[in-house]
Design a binder for these strands. Structure first.
Lengths: 159, 159
DNA sequence: GTCACTAATGATATGTTGTATCCTTCGATG
DNA sequence: CATCGAAGGATACAACATATCATTAGTGAC
């Protein structure tokens, strides 16, 4: 699990290059997200920080830190689940694939996958025809994860 | 604006065919959504009902009614905006296009557009490769609407 | 160093969204 | 008209998020 350290180090470097500060608390929140390998709610992060560091951080602080992490593209909000995930490309500069979130309807587990840019182009086309402007090519896709899919009866899908 | 009546009539027929009851209150909520031609929050619907009908409906009731409308495919929840919209295909039986929501980041306006099924197939492919199951082919796409796009500076996009 | 300035965080209150639970009313059916 | 399930009312509370003002910590000018 040295991968976590690697990601944090990479984030630190990126912040220092950009002239912004990855403070202790910001690092802790990011670390929480990276370690969990999953989407976490703001209040779960509050608990995590307080449990892990004997700290007592208020929700407000967590939300501020999440805003910061989002603005630096170190984390993303998953709107469908009201949760937050570490960006899975922190260590990677160029993005050949467009990141997309698969959100499990049942357990809210979030997986980030890449899809080819060409696929997004089709969507962008439709959006433009509607007179809108695609503001983020990042989609949240309503799914069932592998585990929950096994539990669910097939006929409940595509309802 | 006789279109609204038409949609409501169509919804009534569909409910009666399916043996479920489109009660007065349910009809009012659906009418609110249809008339507004926009996504509304549950609490906006509470206000709407109480203002328009001198009623006093509790949020709980609205949520229940929204659940019903969703289960009958007369309305959809837009997760990104925590709002609800009337299904734009109530009067239309067969769906040649897959409905998608364009959600304005700035003003939360929601537009429902259709995109070709083929485009969705590409996404579904990626989802399957990740071991997930697409539970709804309906996406919520983060956009700027025509109005907000005019207000925003171009360099703020694709950030 | 220390002054002044800004970024970051703390503290507190409150707003918004959604659910749990239990009870009452309404409508169909025998 | 009795009964039974569906719909709705009432109340409380949980989860998610923001507003605002005070305080502390870094950073540069001098």
């Amino acid at each position: 699990m040295d991968k976590v350290q690697e990601i944090i180090a990479s984030a630190e470097q990126r912040c220092s290059e950009r002239g912004v500060r990855l403070t202790t608390k910001r690092k802790r929140v990011l670390k929480g997200l990276v370690e969990s390998e999953n989407a976490m709610s703001a209040y779960e992060l509050v608990d995590y920080c307080n449990r892990t560091y004997g700290d007592s951080m208020a929700p407000m602080s967590i939300y501020r830190i999440l805003d910061f992490l989002e603005s630096e593209h170190l984390a993303h909000k998953v709107n469908m689940a009201n949760k937050y995930v570490a960006c899975s490309h922190i260590t990677c500069d160029h993005e050949h694939m467009v990141p997309q979130f698969l959100v499990c309807d049942s357990c809210s587990k979030v997986k980030e996958v890449g899809i080819p840019k060409a696929a997004i182009a089709v969507l962008e086309q439709s959006v433009q025809e509607a007179g809108y402007l695609l503001s983020s090519p990042q989609l949240e896709i309503s799914c069932l994860c592998d585990e929950c899919a096994n539990d669910a009866a097939p006929e409940t899908l595509h309802g």
